[in-house]
Design a protein around this nucleic acid. Structure first.
Length: 894
DNA sequence: GGGACGACTTGAACATAGAACT
DNA sequence: AGTTCTATGTTCAAGTCGTCCC
């Protein structure tokens, strides 16, 4: 290898320039007072608990989301934009503080406000329509377009439009939501305002296929037309000298990277007008062509079209051909020479051309504390290794794991190996870890007691240590690394009833780690003297920077990837949503097809049909097979007979543990053929048998791919989530102030979370908080009562009554008292509303869907149409993650 | 066609900073 | 100014799905 090690291109320095990033991403280190936040939650347990070596978490996301900046370019111009788009983001984020601002993070140096941008895009199209006009059109469109609504959403309307056969059961019980599963809540809510969902409307039930209107309507068309431009080209780093003045010029980068990045910018120029209409170009040339464009982000539609064409019977070899070429030369020794003619393949084989980074950072070595635990009441001497593991256990005292025998058993087995057979400690029962636990608590307290300055200093020190690992340069662009910290040793915290919980997760050493980096980039210096990396690879078909074997399950790997804000992640995110959008064009046929197969004589077909129906309707996950050494959870294909209970005449009650051992409980009304099919699948089986015994995810997905290129089970989840948001937003947004619009958004967001069963555990202080609120409301009620009495008295010219503590109150005029009364009333109302929201959302997690399932363009476009500042919906990191979506046309509909 | 492997996304819990409240 | 609450950021477990190989 022509690679020189370490001594030089100290990326750290290259990267270090804090000011390089957009100002706004800096966390302004607060000179705030003590952050002694309450320890209501017995945090103890986690992470750095007891693992004193573990760093105080969180590298502040300080300096810039560099890549995003580049990505912000709205319209690929012939020349790389001289302006760092980050500026736009900067402003947007700043406006988080100045909330009045409506700036969107955009490429433009002018960073136009949302309103401006709306106008801009409209002007470009030469259609000076007003926002309202657009919005109106869309509402109309959406109302006409049943196919484009999620099944569940359509169900909701079924009672009045008679179009849907299956109706989700409305929970009849009283309104205490506490024990109501999320999914149920949705359906309950969904039925609000409709007549009851009793099934005497059976005559209204028609197969879904019949519900479907014409496959496409105006909205669909406009979607295609309005499809946003491909991911904007990135601005290579070495252009930074032409940055916006507010952003400091980046320091000299690795020369290799610089050179390459120039090449990249040229590529972008070439690419701009390349509208990919190359179906009639010979494959070999297409390959070359795509290799030329550093940007593989041609819209998914195109990819799909190609795949469709290519993938049709007999044409499979195309993909393989590309793959082989890549494999041979891409990771072969001639990489740098051959890279120019390497296929980047529309399929995205080649993920990068240059990749430079500093590797990973390790947790500091264990510092023995010397506190002795007790065995049968007596202090025991432990070696540092033994003590380290004992400490891991000791600090978990307040967690639920301590109630689990499996956890203790696994811990004991691993710890015992460290103790050795003849150790004085012979069983866990006689161990008393209290001294270590106490020591740990006092350490925590000490940390809490530190002054702001001390904390700040500590943070800065850590920052200094980590800065160089935080960034990578991918194709000449500085990108944030996601997880550059190697996981510290600890006790495995599997979720649910994980058979391996409590096992020792051993320390990872450089010798466990494989680094992936460009061939001509300097190999990261191994941060632990005397040790070395396990392996160096130069594989540009993958995006990981490093990996090691999971110590708990050596079959699995732990990867270091770029952060969510990176261009690579952004691209695949966009492709994900484009694929889901494509499903919209197919969903009508897919639904008719599976409806037809509900009664198929071919049992496999029938099972596929029912499974697809459930995935579509309930947003279930695919459900891969699991090993015995994992928690026993299921998804659609792995549902057991016992997970589904039939409730005549046509309801199914689902009850199972899904991903992360989260309970899924939902009773739904289904079409009769589905009900009967389930009856058939359950017949003559034991409770623990597979419901879909002829099915697994690969068969299911293979079938789905026949219906739509690239379709898999998880696409339905994305599709249903996004379309639900889109439809709800457009149906429910009314004129009004921003606050009201945000409520609409949150409501839609909540429905999506419920569909996806995104739960969170009720905060430990929830009850306390609620009773506190109740108390306050009671107090206010009392005040109100008193005020009313005083008002009466004042009107009669009497002095106010004595206050509860016997003191005399000020004499107030009736007007004054009336004002106070209305103020108090408002206060009470607000508190009651807050309480309701709090209670309502105590088990619903809104964030997950926002991050993973809702096409950000829906949100951005909606914000533009309704003049809601995007920062009201997306926080700083979401803005960075979704920077690729910011220039979407206000007309965009999912 | 089925299992193993590999790469990547999704997910809840936890930690923390800063805002809001008293 | 101290305390509590909330939003955001971090962590790492647990999914999905494509590909390879037999």
């Amino acid at each position: 290898m022509a690679v020189e090690t370490s001594d030089k291109p100290n990326l750290p320095h290259d990267f270090e320039d804090d000011d390089d990033g957009p100002v706004i991403y800096k966390r302004y280190s607060s000179s705030k007072k003590n952050q002694s936040h309450s320890e209501v939650r017995k945090s103890s347990s986690h992470s750095h608990d007891g693992q004193s070596y573990r760093q105080i978490s969180n590298a502040p996301s300080s300096s810039g989301q560099t890549s995003c900046l580049q990505k912000g370019n709205t319209v690929p111009s012939a020349k790389p934009s001289p302006v760092k788009p980050s500026v736009g983001i900067s402003k947007a984020s700043k406006s988080l503080v100045n909330t009045s601002s409506t700036k969107l993070p955009v490429a433009n140096s002018k960073s136009p406000s949302l309103g401006d941008r709306q106008k801009m895009s409209v002007d470009i199209k030469g259609e000076p329509k007003t926002i309202e006009h657009h919005a109106k059109n869309f509402v109309e469109d959406s109302e006409d377009d049943e196919d484009n609504k999620p099944l569940s959403f359509r169900l909701k309307n079924s009672n009045h439009d008679n179009k849907v056969t299956s109706v989700i059961a409305k929970k009849s019980s009283e309104d205490s939501d506490d024990d109501v599963p999320l999914a149920k809540k949705l359906y309950r809510n969904s039925n609000l305002g409709t007549t009851s969902s009793n099934h005497d409307d059976s005559n209204q039930k028609k197969p879904i296929s019949k519900i479907q209107k014409e496959q496409k309507n105006g909205s669909g068309m406009s979607n295609k037309l309005d499809r946003p431009s491909p991911l904007p080209a990135k601005r290579p780093l070495d252009n930074s000298n032409s940055l916006h003045p507010s952003v400091k010029k980046s320091k000299v980068l690795d020369p290799v990277a610089s050179i390459k990045s120039k090449a990249v910018s040229v590529k972008h120029e070439l690419k701009v007008e390349d509208d990919d209409d190359d179906d009639d170009i010979p494959i070999s040339q297409r390959i070359k062509k795509s290799a030329m464009s550093g940007d593989k982000s041609s819209s998914m539609k195109k990819v799909l079209t190609k795949v469709t064409k290519v993938n049709k019977p007999g044409s499979k070899p195309f993909k393989k051909q590309i793959k082989k070429t890549v494999k041979k030369s891409g990771s072969g020794s001639e990489y740098s020479k051959s890279s120019k003619i390497l296929p980047s393949s529309g399929d995205g084989q080649k993920k990068w051309t240059t990749l430079v980074h500093n590797g990973v950072i390790f947790p500091p070595p264990y510092q023995p504390h010397g506190v002795k635990m007790l065995y049968k009441g007596r202090p025991v001497d432990l070696t540092p290794e033994q003590e380290e593991v004992a400490t891991m256990y000791a600090v978990m005292r307040d967690t639920e794991y301590m109630q689990k025998d499996k956890f203790k058993e696994n811990f004991w087995n691993d710890w015992r190996k460290l103790l050795g057979r003849n150790h004085v400690i012979q069983n866990l029962k006689d161990c008393d870890f209290t001294p270590i636990y106490d020591w740990y608590q006092s350490e925590k307290d000490k940390k809490k007691q530190m002054t702001t300055e001390e904390k700040k200093a500590l943070k800065e020190e850590k920052m200094k240590l980590e800065e160089k690992y935080m960034w990578a340069i991918v194709d000449g662009v500085k990108e944030k690394v996601g997880n550059f910290r190697v996981e510290p040793p600890g006790l495995f915290r599997g979720r649910g009833e994980h058979p391996k919980m409590g096992k020792l997760k051993k320390r990872i050493h450089p010798g466990d780690i494989t680094i992936n980096i460009a061939k001509d980039a300097p190999i990261p210096e191994c941060p632990i003297p005397g040790e070395r990396w396990k392996e160096i690879r130069h594989d540009n078909t993958v995006t990981w920077l490093a990996y090691w074997s999971d110590p708990i399950n050596p079959k699995l790997f732990k990867y270091v990837f770029l952060a969510a804000s990176s261009s690579l992640k952004g691209q695949s995110d966009k492709e994900k949503y484009e694929k889901a959008r494509t499903l919209k064009d197919y969903i009508g046929n897919i639904r008719s097809a599976y409806t037809k197969d509900f009664t198929s004589k071919d049992i496999t077909k029938q099972q596929i049909a029912v499974a697809t129906y459930l995935i579509d309707k309930l947003a279930l996950r695919a459900g891969n097979e699991k090993d015995d050494d994992e928690a026993d959870t299921v998804g659609c294909c792995t549902l057991k007979v016992e997970n589904v209970t039939r409730e005549p005449p046509n309801k199914l009650k689902f009850n199972f543990l899904g991903k992360d051992s989260i309970k899924y409980e939902n009773t739904v009304e289904v079409e009769l053929p589905v009900y009967n099919a389930i009856l058939k699948f359950q017949k003559d089986k034991k409770p623990g048998d597979d419901l879909f015994d002829k099915l697994d995810t690969s068969k299911l997905n293979a079938h789905l791919k026949e219906l739509m290129p690239g379709l898999t089970a998880k696409v339905f989840r994305t599709f249903n989530a996004s379309i639900t948001l889109d439809v709800m937003l457009n149906k429910e947004t009314k004129d009004g102030d921003v606050g009201e619009k945000i409520v609409v958004y949150q409501h839609a967001n909540k429905q999506v979370a419920i569909i996806c069963n995104h739960q969170r555990s009720v905060s430990k202080s929830h009850t306390a908080q609620m009773s506190k609120l109740t108390e306050k409301i009671d107090e206010l009620q009392a005040v109100l009562k008193e005020l009313k009495t005083d008002l009466d008295r004042a009107r009669k010219g009497k002095p106010p009554s004595k206050s509860s503590d016997g003191k005399r109150k000020k004499n107030l005029s009736p007007e004054m008292l009336e004002k106070k009364i209305s103020q108090t009333n408002a206060k009470i109302e607000k508190m009651q509303r807050d309480m309701k929201t709090k209670e309502d959302l105590k088990t619903v997690a809104l964030g997950t869907s926002k991050i993973n399932y809702l096409d950000p363009r829906i949100t951005v476009a909606w914000c533009k149409r309704h003049e809601v500042p995007i920062e009201k919906i997306f926080n700083k990191s979401l803005l960075a993650k979704f920077c690729w979506a910011m220039d979407v046309d206000p007309d965009f509909r999912f």
